[in-house]
Design a protein around this nucleic acid. Structure first.
Length: 900
RNA sequence: GCCCACUUAACUCAGCGGUAGAGUGCCGCUUUCACACGGCGGAAGUCGGAGGUUCAAAUCCUCCAGUGGGCACCA
């Protein structure tokens, strides 16, 4: 059999995925067990414009591990894939294309433009789904969805109509976040606050109308002087003694000739600035509220392009807001009304996508009142603790946000998206309907115009867990797969998306959309910074796949816990090495597989097996148990750790070495066949355990193993072509977990390690055989060592190993060591021992033990400890103290022996 | 301003009430017939600081410092 020495991931990655997809292994229909439990995940749909980044790779790895694991456990699994139409992003991508042809979307018109977007989607929208195939994700492509699909669009209209009919959706003029670049309104969540370090606070003086010709001025502080052109009041705190006499007075607003009142409002903080606030209801959210409270006029001085309007005055009209700011300040200075300008750091709102400074404007938009759905979500958490957040600290974040939830602005001034299902007749009456026909019926006319706005992209995403399953129809998929089992996502969309799915799911399906929410950590760059396009510090997962292989990358990602972790090539490299280790262990087993069959070799009662066989089965079952428990708790790193060390340490370093002489015996025969079968069997089980994490290498090897086939599959998949993907996931068999064998093996391992240590410390050449004497008192270890003699000889490179109850008389030139359990070892090394060094070595060892003994004795002599600590704890320490005492004595004698 | 998380070996991180761990790196030795992407052995940490609770604290509590993140209408 030709098997290369080094694992090349490319070939396996290229061949298996296409086979799995073609064979239908990813679809729930592959499961033939009608009573199989169900496991489902709806993928967080990546933007159709997107390309794979590390965050996707991380989340997809975890979802794939969960899905593959459950599938192998016999669950009917559905991991549903799809993409999001991503309103603004997609519209901009296509607009940019048009720009190359010297066209704007307005040149095309809405209909042609939208057609063009669909065309773009057909040609270029598949990039991310192709990249996902590279990751090995076991999603059911036959159920792939897109948020603008007809089915999902129907769900969107249905939800809109129902919310409107129940009075949760309304249309009205409110102050909103306007992005002058994207030319659309944005929800609060699409606005980011950024610290403006070089901000200025301007102190403007407004003359007060006194009627008696006396000069008095009121100073207001502002970061936006240009908005003073739209001021309609100055507010002070009613309890502020400085201004008490001014409440109700009139201020002559400079530059405008308008007169505005001084009003009192508790909102004003007397301690800030001058304690007097200019109020611009049309251009500031807080002022807007105050304007509503005091019935103030709204004077619009800034338009949707962030330019000054005619109402700003002839000198200002047409100016950009920042030009207007300069001019206002200059005029104030000329008039002697600019008191001062201070440096002032404050938070400024920007468009999350394009980073343009938001212009608060009053605009007619569609909104959703969230109170009813908010209460449903809070009740679900309060009553049932659902969804369960992992890590649980996010539950508080989620609750706090919900409790302070405000109305959601859902209309967007875009062309790409779900057009709002509202029509207007010629009088401007609005008809909300599922389609135009229904609207006509309601309106009693066909002279209707549909609202030009589209819905916030997150409106359709909020329906994702059920719209993808066919809602509003009562489909079989909806019944089978809703609620989904878990949502795996990043923390930055808990509000934007997670909360809305819960609210929408409760409202429209009457049930939570998922049981658990697993919030992943974030992969940071090497310097600990978030990866971002603007910083250009992203590491492309596809490059990592090319360099180290998909399986190694997945293992690295899975080993990231719930906390943020810096990217490290070295770590991926170590998992690449692990993949190679797996490859070579398999290579060894396969090169020695003649006469062997997976599943054989462990016949009869475990008591009749050799120690190392009982031991490896115990380790294997413990590992299966650990992995199962870890995955149930989303402790991916624990699962990886358990698998890594089982495979490398237990299986490769010890089991293969211990069984090597039997496996590679020159003479064929039943004993050799059995030993070979056992190695193959353990390997095969290990591959199953590893498969959810490393799908490619495990399949590549598994298919080559002699004896695997239809019989290896989980019963739910009978009739399927053999694949490790559908093999039964190993479940811990508690009967095979054998603590005594593990303890005995541990003694053998320690014995071997100590002899090796002596060899190294005393510079014995690797090729030089040694003689080893072991005394194991009268306890059972004597038999354990006796039974493992050939293996011990091989592992320590001894010409001879003698095990007895007591150490025989040995020459002075003997290296010695005292082990736990009263075991002593001696290696005569005539001519090799440096007596001084050996004395030192024993002294070091003694010192280490003495220190530990002192600590233990201090504890044991503390009556409080003996009294209050659990009895077994005390007993454990006593035993350890006794053992150390014995070893120290032995070392002392060894030291004496060296002197004689 | 408020809230949350993090701070453990040179690096990246586990552990989260009972003898300090892993991977990488480092220091020896080693190309013995699965693997040098390997093997064997080894050195390396007063677990951010200060208090407190406890028989016992890296682990629980309080305060402080640093880092990162979220929330917030102080103009």
């Amino acid at each position: 059999m030709e098997i290369p020495k080094t694992y090349d991931p490319k070939q396996a990655e290229e061949s298996h995925y296409a086979n799995w997809e073609r064979a239908g292994y990813f679809a729930p229909e592959i499961n033939k067990d009608p009573s199989a439990p169900v496991y489902s995940i709806a993928i967080p749909p990546p933007n159709v414009t997107g390309s794979l980044h590390m965050g996707h790779a991380l989340q997809h790895t975890m979802m794939d591990v969960l899905t593959r694991h459950k599938r192998m456990c016999g669950y009917r699994t559905l991991w549903l894939p799809g993409t999001d139409h991503a309103g603004i992003s997609t519209q901009l991508v296509v607009s940019r294309e048009l720009k190359k042809e010297k066209l704007t979307r307005h040149d095309l018109g809405r209909e042609k433009f939208v057609e063009r977007v669909w065309q773009w989607k057909a040609e270029s929208g598949g990039q991310i789904t192709r990249q996902m195939r590279r990751e090995g994700v076991s999603v059911d492509w036959s159920r792939e969805r897109f948020t603008m699909d007809e089915g999902l669009s129907r769900a969107v209209r249905e939800v809109f109509v129902r919310l409107y009919e129940e009075g949760h959706i309304y249309r009205g003029a409110r102050i909103v976040n306007w992005c002058p670049t994207d030319q659309t309104v944005l929800s609060d969540l699409e606005v980011v606050k950024e610290t403006k370090k070089d901000g200025k606070l301007y102190f403007l003086q407004y003359p007060i109308k006194t009627g008696n010709g006396s000069e008095r001025r009121l100073t207001v502080a502002t970061t936006r002087p240009e908005t003073m052109l739209g001021d309609t009041a100055v507010a002070v705190n009613p309890s502020d003694e400085r201004y008490g006499d001014l409440i109700g007075a009139t201020v002559m607003l400079p530059l405008t000739g308008r007169e505005i009142p001084v009003i009192a409002d508790d909102y004003v903080d007397p301690a800030f600035g001058t304690g007097a606030v200019k109020i611009t209801p049309a251009h500031d959210p807080a002022d807007y509220e105050m304007g509503v409270r005091h019935d103030l006029a709204q004077v619009f001085v800034i338009d949707q392009n962030a330019r000054m309007t005619a109402d700003a005055g002839a000198e200002f009209v047409g100016l950009d807001r920042y030009e207007a700011r300069e001019l206002v300040v200059k005029k104030f200075e000329e008039l002697g009304l600019l008191e001062k300008v201070e440096d002032y750091e404050f938070a400024i709102s920007k468009c999350e996508r394009c980073k343009t400074v938001i212009e608060p404007l009053i605009s007619t938009q569609w909104f959703v009142r969230m109170d009813e759905m908010r209460d449903m979500a809070l009740k679900l958490l309060g009553d049932e603790g659902k969804p369960r957040f992992i890590p649980d600290s996010y539950e508080k974040v989620y609750t706090n946000w919900l409790e302070n939830l405000r109305d959601w602005t859902i209309s967007r001034q875009l062309w790409w998206g779900h057009q709002i299902p509202a029509w207007y007749d010629e009088e401007g009456n609005v008809y909300v309907a599922r389609n135009e026909e229904e609207a006509r019926a309601k309106a009693g006319t066909d002279k209707l115009t549909q609202d030009p706005d589209v819905l916030d992209t997150w409106f359709s995403s909020g329906l994702w867990p059920f719209s993808t399953l066919g809602w509003p129809d009562e489909t079989a998929d909806l019944r089978a797969f809703y609620p989904t089992s878990v949502l795996v996502t990043a923390r930055d969309i808990i509000f934007l998306w997670v909360s809305r799915m819960v609210m929408m799911g409760m409202k429209f399906v009457g049930e939570r959309p998922f049981e658990d929410v697993f919030i992943t950590g974030t992969v940071l760059d090497r310097a600990g910074q978030r990866m971002s396009k603007s910083k250009n510090n992203g590491i492309d997962p596809l490059d990592v796949f090319d360099k180290y292989g998909v399986d190694a990358t997945r293992l690295m990602l899975a080993s990231i816990g719930g906390t943020d972790t810096r990217w490290s090539d070295a770590q991926v490299e170590s998992y690449r090495n692990f993949a190679n280790k797996i490859w070579n262990a398999a290579r060894f087993c396969l090169l020695n597989s003649e006469g062997a069959t997976v599943g054989k070799g462990f016949e009869g009662a475990p008591e009749t097996w050799a120690l190392h066989d009982r031991w490896i089965m115990s380790r294997l079952n413990k590992t299966a148990r650990a992995v199962g428990e870890a995955l149930a708790d989303y402790q991916f790193h624990e699962a990886v750790y358990a698998l890594y060390h089982f495979f490398w340490d237990d299986f490769c370093d010890w089991y293969i070495e211990l069984s090597k002489s039997d496996v590679t015996a020159a003479a064929a025969g039943p004993a050799r066949d059995a030993a070979r079968s056992r190695a193959l069997t353990v390997l095969e089980q290990a591959l199953r355990l590893l498969h959810p994490f490393m799908p490619f290498i495990t399949e590549e090897i598994w298919l080559r193993l002699p004896g695997v086939g239809a019989g290896s599959l989980h019963p739910a998949y009978h009739g399927a072509t053999p694949t490790v993907m559908l093999a039964a996931y190993p479940q811990a068999d508690e009967k095979l977990i054998d603590e005594q064998s593990e303890a005995e093996m541990q003694s053998v391992i320690e014995l071997v390690s100590r002899v090796r240590n002596i060899r190294t410390e005393l510079n014995v050449k690797p090729s030089e055989p040694v003689r080893v004497f072991v005394s194991a008192g009268e306890n059972g270890l004597q038999k354990v060592f006796g039974d493992s003699l050939p293996q011990i000889m091989r592992l320590v490179r001894a010409s001879d190993v003698t095990v007895s109850g007591a150490m025989p008389e040995l020459p002075r030139a003997t290296a010695r060591q005292a082990l736990a359990g009263g075991v002593e070892i001696a290696v005569p090394l005539e001519g090799l021992i440096d007596f001084t060094r050996e004395t030192e070595r024993i002294a070091r060892e003694t010192e280490k033990l003495t220190k530990e003994l002192e600590r233990i004795e201090a504890q044991l002599s503390n009556p409080q400890f003996v009294e209050r600590a659990p009895a077994e704890k005390v007993e454990e320490l006593r035993q350890r103290a006794a053992d150390i005492g014995q070893r120290t004595n032995a070392l002392k004698q060894m030291s004496e022996a060296l002197k004689s």
